[in-house]
Amino acid sequence: MQEAKKIALLIDCDNVSHTAIEGVLEELAKHGTVNVRHAHGDWKSSSLSGWADKLHPHAIRPMQQFAYTKGKNATDAAMIIDAMDLLYSGNIDAFALMTSDSDFTPLVLRILENGFPVYGFGQRKTPKPFVDSCSPFIYIENLVSSSESETENVSSPVKKSKAKLRQDTALVRLLRTAIDQAAGDDGWANMGQVASYIANNNSSFSSINYGYGRVSDLIKATELFKVELRNGTAMYIRDPKS
């Protein structure tokens, strides 16, 4: 049995909401064990009170960073140093960065160069360069629990409708290409191979950003493709246009 990945979660508390931390940890549990949980910020600031309430329940270690100079984000530098220390410790198999700040893009690229995956979590305002560099990137608005949504007045995640999905030309193009590349001579593609193609060629992609837990659910929701179950469990997809 393969040993679970050891994941380091680093949180930029100055730049991302605390409302989705439960969802982030649940998502990371699918990939391994989050044995390092560091929350960076100036804990003397009242703006982090929401985060302060999340530390103990989720075994998150607060990393104090004083704002030495007004207008300068010392948290970024401290978090980068923390990441590099962990990178060279030899005790981590993957990283997760919870931030909406594109300044961390070079850090992600550096970690990827060392062969470690980087799971990104941030708000929809997150700049595209950072989103595209992660593997994958998930918008935290899709991970907020219903109770947090009511308390913080945050919009609950909603599954995109068939019409909305079909209007997303980039998504449709990606799905068609993946199915075409994974298809056999009969035109049918195994769902597992389709998902692998997407992961290998668009690492930042996540079906969760469209409101669906799995790629297969997302594909079925578009109603653009033929779906067939074989042997009761194996799903195959075919593009009628091919």
Rank of each mutant, 00 (worst) to 15 (best):
K72Y: 03
Q64E: 12
G120D: 04
F130M: 15
P127I: 05
F66C: 06
N142V: 08
D101C: 00
Y68F: 15
Y68H: 15
I92N: 03
F121R: 06
V108S: 03
S145A: 02
N114F: 12
A77R: 06
D93K: 05
S100D: 04
N73V: 04
D132R: 15
L143E: 14
R110T: 02
V144H: 12
A74M: 08
Q64L: 02
N114V: 02
S147Q: 15
S135A: 07
E113Q: 15
E113N: 14
K125R: 13
D101I: 08
N142W: 04
E148V: 08
S89K: 09
I80T: 11
N91Y: 09
T69Y: 04
N73F: 04
T105N: 06
P106E: 02
L86H: 09
S135P: 00
G122K: 07
G120C: 11
G71K: 09
L109P: 03
G120T: 03
V108H: 07
G115C: 08
L112P: 03
S133N: 06
G90K: 05
Y119R: 02
R61L: 13
D101G: 08
M79C: 06
K125N: 11
V108W: 06
M63R: 15
Y88L: 13
E113P: 09
M63G: 00
I80Y: 05
P117R: 03
F66Y: 15
N142R: 14
P62W: 06
A83E: 02
R61S: 12
A77E: 06
D93I: 09
F95S: 00
N114S: 14
R124F: 05
